[in-house]
Design a protein around this nucleic acid. Structure first.
Lengths: 199, 199
DNA sequence: AAAAAACATCCGTATTTTCCGCAAATTTAA
DNA sequence: TTAAATTTGCGGAAAATACGGATGTTTTTT
């Protein structure tokens, strides 16, 4: 019995290429390829894949967010995150979302295939030395404010939008910076995007 | 006689996948794959490829700059630019650098293969309607500074890193804001990430 | 080869925005 | 009822941004 794989990537060229590479392996089978994570549910029900290999950054989607949904709703489907960027934040985000592995696109198909096999037997493979534990989840208000920051709003504008004082906004911003271990709102936003906290 | 192709992409997984896809075509032959454009000259001399398929954004390299060099030094090698981002500025840049085609990674291998064939016979294929709206791309320095901004550096820090005055950095930042139509460095970074200008 | 355009570099002044440290009241949730 | 979250305030330092203007270099165009 082959390991059933579902590929998710908005780059057709990349996805079909990886499909070819994986199908060179006798123990792996790509049951389908989709370029929109919105089709995930349908495909999971249809094929019941063992492993879902998903890109972390897609045009209008975030692989991390979809991983969270899959882990919650279809825990038998294990997720391997693919990424073109080798960032600690991405690795951390994938780990926390419940993925089983993080594979950089710079790696060879050999390593992807191995990550899939490890995942299939339930072994998570993450470089533990690169997991930082940003274990301070943001509160609802903080997330809301972070979202506004990413939309290029000033603290004064945010205070108007949320009908709270500028001081309050500043306080929340401070909390956000502390929790995300960022030195400024720029760093916070970049980190949050990488962590999949905001779009 | 098959069309001789040289692949250049720092993402092994992607490159080897595309290699497989292209080798399904009877008239195409991938003579080699390299993940550093620095190896281009050697490979060109060795294989004299007809078409070079190169990623536009690589880890420490810029596909556009390398295209310019190839066009100037080895005009018999025609370049097809691959990109994960369907961005007018990229298309324009590829065109002006002298590439023969711009293929988005969202396209199928069919389209890449066709672009290669068109290129081989000397036909440039660019979406002409997208070559007009050229709204000031960022210069190399601006991109470098934008990258530092995204790494949470202050203008003073950037000035030290680049050995230029803080005023100069400030000037570049305002140019970046103007060109990206952002109100602050946060907005610029968010936009740049979405546009794929920076990691 | 000359002219024009774009780029990178520097400076001053003024204003706005951000961020920090401190303290504390009110609401909400466990 | 503790605990956490949310809220507001003050003062002040640091950073960023906007508005000027200026010079030399590189690149492109003519």
């Amino acid at each position: 019995m082959k390991i059933k794989i579902l590929l998710v990537d908005d780059h057709l060229l990349v996805m079909h290429g990886i499909q070819q590479l994986l199908e060179n392996e006798v123990d792996l089978e790509v049951v389908n390829t989709i370029c929109y994570p919105a089709l995930l549910e349908r495909e999971i029900k249809k094929h019941n894949p063992d492993v879902i290999v998903m890109d972390i950054r897609m045009k209008n989607d975030n692989g991390i967010e979809w991983t969270r949904k899959i882990v919650k709703t279809y825990p038998t489907c294990k997720v391997v995150i693919l990424s073109g960027y080798d960032y600690d934040e991405y690795i951390q985000a994938a780990y926390e979302a419940g993925a089983y592995a993080f594979v950089n696109k710079e790696n060879s198909s050999f390593e992807l295939a191995n990550a899939i096999r490890q995942t299939y037997v339930g072994i998570k493979s993450f470089p533990t030395d690169r997991l930082h534990n940003y274990n301070s989840p943001l509160t609802t208000t903080e997330l809301k404010i972070l979202q506004f920051i990413s939309e290029d709003k000033t603290n004064a504008e945010i205070s108007n939008l949320l009908h709270i004082s500028r001081r309050t906004v500043e306080h929340h911003v401070s909390s956000i910076l502390r929790k995300l271990d960022a030195d400024s709102r720029v760093g916070a936003v970049v980190k949050a995007i990488k962590l999949g906290l905001i779009g």
